[in-house]
Simulated assay, not measured.
Amino acid sequence: MIEASDFRDAMASLTTAVNVITTQGVSGSHGFTASAVCSVTDTPPTLLVCMNQTSRSHEHFIENKVLSVNVLSAHHEPISNTFASKLCSEERFKQGAWTQLVTGSPILEDALVSFDCEIEEIQRVGTHSVFICRVVAIQQSEHEESLVYFKRGYHQIGQVELA
């Protein structure tokens, strides 16, 4: 039997993009920082997002039935920390400049890339919900450096301009 702590320690070696997942709808605006995001298929464009069921915004995502995945650029570490904090939703969205695409979910204007999605299916697995999301719009920026999480810390990868 693999202990949960051993699994978490091993997963810390998996380098992942840092994302802020947002929603807007009848249940209001909410968001959280996540690394558990990945592509499912390109036909139709679909991705998945994993969210802890004990998260205070979990039910809001289910009620709104939409979300946006905002992939953070290297300079967004403060926004990642804000959306991972215990601040209320209103305080979280005071950081950064936000817009909307199709679903109305908040899109970080200068995110590396944002995927605007409709939640098509929800699977409960252990402590988490897996949201299967149909991508309905994409917005990309000109940034070339990404914020990633590895060994429980932030790192930056990508093209660095030399002076």
Rank of each mutant, 00 (worst) to 15 (best):
P44G: 03
L112G: 08
H143W: 07
S68P: 01
L112A: 04
N70A: 02
A97E: 15
I107F: 05
A111E: 02
T22A: 01
T41G: 08
S57D: 09
A137Y: 08
I132Q: 07
V49A: 05
S85M: 01
I2E: 12
N70W: 02
S13I: 10
S39T: 13
C117Q: 03
E109P: 02
D116H: 04
E59P: 03
P106W: 00
T46H: 04
A111Y: 01
I132C: 06
H76I: 01
Q156W: 04
T23R: 01
F61E: 00
E91V: 01
Q95V: 12
I122D: 09
F115G: 01
L48C: 10
I157T: 14
P106L: 03
S27A: 15
R8M: 05
N19S: 09
I138P: 11
R152I: 04
T127C: 09
N64K: 06
I157M: 14
D9L: 13
S89D: 15
T16L: 15
E59H: 13
S141W: 06
I119A: 05
T22Q: 02
V125W: 12
T46M: 10
L162D: 14
V130C: 06
Q139P: 04
H58Q: 08
A84H: 03
Y154V: 02
C38E: 07
I138Y: 05
A10S: 13
N19D: 08
K151C: 10
R8S: 04
S39F: 12
T41Y: 07
H58T: 05
T15K: 10
N52F: 07
Q24E: 14
F150R: 07
C50D: 06
E3K: 13
V148D: 11
E63A: 15
P106M: 02
Q156F: 11
G158E: 05
V135L: 08
D6I: 10
G153F: 09
V26M: 10
P106H: 01
H75E: 14
E142T: 15
E120S: 13
T16A: 15
L14Q: 09
G104L: 06
H30K: 08
S146M: 12
